[in-house]
Design a protein around this nucleic acid. Structure first.
Lengths: 202, 202
DNA sequence: CTGACATCTGAATCAGTAGTCAGGTTAGGG
DNA sequence: CCCTAACCTGACTACTGATTCAGATGTCAG
């Protein structure tokens, strides 16, 4: 599908990298459609034809970037929540890590959002993968009694929705972290939404 | 900006309407970018030039459609929640109404989502308007003690995030309402997230 | 019936761009 | 040093699609 062997030398690998980085910036700042392949190659400092040595078509760079974002975000989230013991700390640290990541990867985040209209499959895969991992964690936390019983997948998608708009509103639209008051109110809603029913402990 | 006087006869008004309806379907099914003005005029049964008698450019139809969706959705939500007395009923009915609306206006909903990458202003305006109205209601409910104290705007955006993904996942991706179990788990999270602190009643 | 205005037509213009290709350049193993 | 695989070049092709415009045509008040 998106074959094309990885370059076999360091020079090739560097060129491929340059193209991906340039594409992330161009797509992020001007959008996928408004970006011409020549914009990407210009920014990379290579010729147009070179692009097609590394990617079969323009859309394949997008796919690669979305996969990249998924990997990096999952990594950032597990790093960011590593120290936490109870579930609520995990949630708080996770939300903080997500905001920090969105702030420092604004272009990438926009690329993911736009991918929905270029290749819906990759967009859905991105969220499904994230949601699946999240669901597993919530089911575990439910078993421990840290989280209210209920469909964990529904909980996961709800929390992703909350995080999505928080990131969009501040990291993407304002290029800054949400004010403490907003972050706290948001987290409190999550915390109470997940808090186990006082009557039905484990 | 997007001037062009409304048509002065019923014939003109009908043509304008045909163009909008056709655009909603084409944009919704094939996306804004993949849709040519000629697709819209073909579906409307008018000539290409006619399009430009009613809209200065392709982008203006999109703007009109997003404004339309905003108006219709706000209307559907206030209709759908009209009977409710307490805040939680309002939330439940609102979420139900939102899902029903998304299901019956899938194309329009997709158009709104894509507008983000065509004219960010109109997209932000859409959500800001929705959020502002929601915030006012939540502040009122907080004052009555129906909802936990806290930044109401943060609450509003969080709930919009929850609803957005629920609608996306079922109404848009599966063309069906969410299963009862999912809806209930989602609503329970919202309900507990908003529920007032037992200690601090009004 | 007729003028005048609103509406409609669709071929032509014009600007842009994804992807190709025939040949150059580089670098490092032998 | 030299050969060869790997890499790079950029002008060119082939095509798309938004917007324009010089005229029809519809309609209705007088």
């Amino acid at each position: 599908m998106n074959a094309l062997p990885r370059p076999s030398t360091a020079r090739g690998e560097a060129t491929r990298r340059k193209l991906l980085t340039a594409a992330e910036i161009e797509f992020g700042q001007n959008g996928y459609v408004a970006t011409a392949v020549s914009d990407i190659t210009k920014r990379s400092g290579v010729a147009q034809g070179t692009f097609y040595l590394y990617f079969p078509s323009k859309i394949d760079v997008l796919r690669e970037l979305v996969r990249d974002m998924g990997r990096q975000l999952r990594h950032a989230l597990s790093e960011g929540t590593a120290g936490a013991t109870d579930r609520l700390s995990v949630e708080r640290l996770g939300l903080e890590a997500f905001i920090a990541f969105s702030l420092s990867h604004q272009n990438l985040y926009k690329v993911v959002m736009e991918s929905q209209f270029v290749d819906e499959t990759i967009y859905r895969e991105y969220y499904q993968t994230l949601a699946d991992a999240y669901t597993v964690n919530l089911e575990r936390a439910q078993a421990c009694g840290d989280v209210r019983q209920g469909n964990a997948s529904a909980q996961a998608w709800s929390l992703m929705g909350v995080a999505h708009f928080l990131g969009l509103r501040y990291a993407i639209w304002r290029h800054e972290a949400p004010p403490q008051e907003i972050f706290d109110a948001t987290f409190e809603l999550i915390a109470n939404g997940l808090a186990p029913d006082p009557g039905g402990g484990a």
